[in-house]
Deep mutational scan, measured.
Amino acid sequence: MLEGKVKWFNSEKGFGFIEVEGQDDVFVHFSAIQGEGFKTLEEGQAVSAEIVEGNRGPQAANVTKEA
């Protein structure tokens, strides 16, 4: 698991990027966000996630919002 913060997230398109210190930004799709209801993230929000290899490079999986 790694910790980072949301760089930006487009709720209409359902994707965005997470900033991780010392690494390239990581793509995040709404389907990777854990929880019930409408899955979205806010800019600057702290999150933790796993990194997996997607079709277009590294992407976030099992994204959870930090308190």
Rank of each mutant, 00 (worst) to 15 (best):
A32S: 09
L2V: 15
V52E: 07
T64W: 14
E43W: 13
F38L: 06
E36I: 11
A46N: 11
V47N: 01
W8M: 01
K7G: 04
G44N: 06
F30R: 04
I18E: 00
F15M: 04
A32L: 02
L41K: 01
E3R: 15
V26H: 01
V63F: 00
K5R: 10
K39F: 04
E42F: 14
D25A: 07
V47K: 00
Q23W: 14
E21R: 10
L41D: 02
G54F: 07
G37A: 05
A46C: 14
V63Q: 01
Q23C: 12
D24S: 13
K7H: 06
I51L: 10
H29M: 04
I51G: 01
K65L: 12
N62R: 11
L2S: 09
M1H: 12
A67L: 12
S48Q: 13
D24P: 15
G44W: 04
E50F: 14
W8C: 09
E66G: 14
G54C: 10
L41V: 04
S48W: 15
N55C: 15
F38I: 07
E12I: 13
G57A: 04
A67Q: 12
N55M: 13
K7N: 05
R56T: 07
V20T: 05
G37S: 06
S31Y: 04
A46V: 14
K5V: 13
E53P: 12
V20I: 14
E43L: 13
S48C: 14
K39A: 06
V6Q: 00
D25T: 06
E66C: 15
A67S: 12
G14Q: 02
T64D: 06
H29R: 00
Q59C: 09
A32K: 04
T64M: 13
G54K: 06
F27P: 00
F17R: 02
A49Y: 15
G4D: 03
L2C: 12
V6H: 04
V20S: 07
Q45C: 09
E50N: 12
E50L: 14
L41G: 02
P58F: 10
I51A: 03
W8A: 00
Q34T: 11
E19Q: 12
V52A: 08
Q59L: 07
I33N: 01
G57S: 07
E36A: 12
W8F: 07
K5I: 13
K65A: 10
E42N: 11
F9Q: 01
Q34P: 05
Q59V: 11
I51M: 08
H29K: 03
A60V: 05
G57L: 04
G44E: 03
F38K: 06
F15L: 04
A32D: 10
A32Y: 05
G14A: 01
E19K: 11
G22H: 07
E12T: 13
E36H: 12
A60T: 03
I33C: 07
W8R: 00
V26T: 03
G54N: 06
W8V: 01
F27Q: 02
G57K: 05
A61G: 09
W8E: 05
G35V: 08
S11L: 09
V52P: 02
Q34R: 11
I51H: 03
V20P: 01
A60R: 01
E66F: 14
Q34D: 08
F27C: 06
A61K: 10
E50T: 14
E43G: 12
S11Y: 11
S11R: 14
K65T: 11
I33G: 03
E12N: 12
G14N: 01
E36T: 12
G4T: 00
G57I: 03
G44R: 04
G57R: 08
W8Y: 09
M1K: 15
G57Y: 05
Q34C: 13
E21G: 08
I51D: 02
N10C: 10
G4C: 08
K5A: 06
E42Q: 14
V63P: 03
A60D: 03
G16D: 00
L41A: 04
E19S: 13
I33S: 01
K13R: 11
F17P: 00
W8N: 02
D24T: 10
K13W: 10
F30Q: 04
G57T: 03
V26Q: 01
G57N: 04
F38R: 07
F9H: 02
E42D: 09
G37N: 05
T40Y: 11
N10A: 07
K7L: 06
E36L: 10
K7I: 08
E19M: 13
V6N: 02
K39Q: 09
G37T: 06
F27L: 03
K65I: 14
E42R: 14
A49C: 15
Q23D: 07
G14L: 01
A60Q: 01
E53H: 13
K13G: 05
A32F: 06
E12M: 12
L41N: 02
A67P: 13
F9V: 03
A61D: 06
N55I: 14
F9I: 02
L2P: 02
G14F: 03
F30Y: 12
G35L: 06
V26L: 14
G35A: 09
G44F: 04
F27K: 01
V26K: 03
G35F: 08
N62L: 10
W8S: 00
I33A: 01
N62K: 12
A49T: 11
F38G: 05
I33V: 09
K65C: 09
E53T: 13
V26I: 14
Q23H: 14
E66T: 15
G14H: 02
N10M: 05
T40P: 02
M1Y: 12
G44S: 06
F27T: 01
V52S: 08
E3Q: 15
G35I: 08
E53D: 10
I33M: 03
P58C: 09
I51T: 04
V28S: 02
A67R: 09
G16K: 00
A67Y: 12
N55K: 15
F30S: 05
F17I: 08
E66S: 14
M1S: 10
F27A: 00
M1T: 13
P58K: 11
N10G: 02
T40E: 06
F15R: 00
F30W: 15
K5F: 12
A60G: 05
E12F: 12
S11I: 10
D24K: 14
S48G: 08
A60S: 03
Q45I: 09
D24M: 12
V52K: 09
G22F: 07
E21I: 11
E43A: 15
S31C: 09
D25K: 05
A49I: 15
D24Q: 13
K65F: 12
K5Y: 13
E19Y: 11
A60N: 03
S11E: 09
H29V: 03
F27V: 02
A46M: 14
I18L: 10
G57V: 03
T64N: 11
P58W: 11
Q59S: 07
E19P: 00
A49P: 01
A67W: 12
G54L: 07
V63H: 01
F17K: 03
V6W: 04
L41Y: 01
E3Y: 15
T40I: 08
T40L: 07
N10F: 06
L2Q: 09
W8H: 02
E42I: 14
Q59A: 08
E21A: 12
L2Y: 12
K39M: 07
A32N: 08
T64K: 14
I51S: 03
G35M: 13
K5G: 04
L2A: 09
